[in-house]
Amino acid sequence: MSVNLSPLPPARRGRPGRLALLWSEMKRHKASYLFLAPFLLLFTFFTIVPILMSVGMSFTYYNILEKPKFIGLSNYRLLFVDDDIFLKAIGITLKFAFITGPIGYAMAFLLAWLISQIPVKYRFFYTLCFYTPSITSAVAMSVVWLYLFAGDRKGLLNYYAIQIGLIEEPYLFLQNVNSIVPVIIIVSLWMSMGVGFLAFLAGLQNVPKDLYEAGAIDGVRFRWQELIYITIPAVKPQLLFGAVLQVVSSLTVFDVSIQLVGLPSPLYAGHTILTHLYDYAFIKFEMGYASAIAVVLFVLMIGLNRLIFKLLGRE
């Protein structure tokens, strides 16, 4: 009786696992991974580890003075069942994000596109004018806006509105619950020309001129046709990058709200998720509950960013 000692067919041989393939790739490209190592270490210790610690602390009661005490899902149950202020903060944050996100994103791209159309020697001046508000301290900027929206006769808007007869008494822009969110939206839009705006401008200036020449040969005659058929497809990576930044900035509005309407705002009309997190983390020192708020905000960001990747990141 003979025994078949022939090797197994290729389909039945043991295939290396993913870890083995990853290890072989790392050995083959070890120089590249050595260059990446400093960033990967910093990213791990200052981003991944804090996220994991925050998730773990969200299941505990921790007030800094005592050791963390495991309480399961109690923090999340309290957030979504008993904390009316948090539910209100979610509504205000989403309202703010769905207004300032698309509008700020479109404004940044259109302004970058307009600046890219003017002569090179003037671009620096216009870029500086639009970019400066985003790098200026929110405290310094709030001084200007507080003077503009002040609720007495010395406030700039109230003064001119009374002078021309639109109103008889000063309007309390920063105390009226109906006007707090619109004011925060206006100020945030004015300060929204940040890194995404610069990314758009850089991408627009690096679109190959050959594409426009080829488009002219194929029948593209107008600027709006160039924008739709040539420019936007050529800067999709920058559009994706700007969209991600816009989502993050829209969901993490904090400084503008604090400086304009304080903490807490009148009837919590300007209370956002990040403001609620700051309140529990650094005023009430309930770190477990604050961690649960941070996890909810993190999941919300991940969900919206996944949606953006599906819309802009298919290629």
Rank of each mutant, 00 (worst) to 15 (best):
Y147M: 11
T47G: 04
A234K: 00
I115F: 03
R153S: 15
N305Q: 15
K67A: 15
I103W: 03
L87Y: 09
V187G: 01
P233A: 12
L204H: 04
V244Q: 06
H271P: 02
I230R: 01
S116N: 15
A269Q: 02
L267K: 15
P68N: 10
L5Q: 09
F46M: 08
G165Q: 08
V256W: 01
R28A: 10
F39C: 06
Y76L: 09
T44M: 14
Q117N: 14
R221T: 11
A37T: 15
A150Q: 12
G17F: 02
A281R: 00
L274Q: 03
S24G: 09
L157D: 07
F39H: 08
G219M: 05
I167T: 13
A202S: 14
M193P: 00
P10M: 08
G165L: 07
F45T: 11
L78C: 13
S265L: 02
L148R: 01
Y62I: 09
L78T: 14
Y105K: 00
Y159N: 15
P208V: 06
V55G: 07
L34I: 15
L34D: 04
L156Q: 11
G219L: 12
F197S: 00
L19F: 14
F222Y: 13
I164S: 10
E226K: 14
T252Q: 15
G215V: 08
R15H: 10
I232C: 00
I71S: 08
L114Y: 02
F124K: 12
A216I: 08
P50N: 06
M193Y: 15
G262W: 03
L189S: 05
L260G: 00
I308F: 11
D83K: 07
L251S: 00
A202V: 10
E168C: 07
M57A: 11
M141V: 14
L52S: 09
K310Q: 13
M301P: 02
I51H: 06
L22C: 09
S134P: 01
A11H: 11
V299K: 10
P266A: 09
E66T: 12
P16C: 07
S192P: 05
V295E: 03
K209Q: 13
V253M: 10
Y76Q: 11
L148W: 07
M141S: 08
N75R: 10
S116K: 02
A20E: 14
M287C: 03
T100L: 02
I64S: 12
L311N: 07
P50K: 05
E315Q: 15
L227H: 05
P68D: 12
V143I: 15
G303V: 13
L128W: 10
F309M: 13
A31T: 13
G215H: 04
N75E: 14
F59K: 05
V81A: 13
F86C: 05
E213P: 02
Y62K: 06
P264C: 06
T100K: 03
E213S: 06
Y126R: 01
V187R: 01
K154P: 03
I283C: 04
H276C: 05
L36N: 08
L111C: 09
G270C: 07
F109C: 04
K310N: 13
N206I: 05
I283R: 15
Q205V: 04
V120T: 12
K27S: 11
N63K: 11
I164Y: 12
E66R: 11
L110A: 13
N206E: 09
R123M: 07
I85P: 00
P233L: 07
R15P: 03
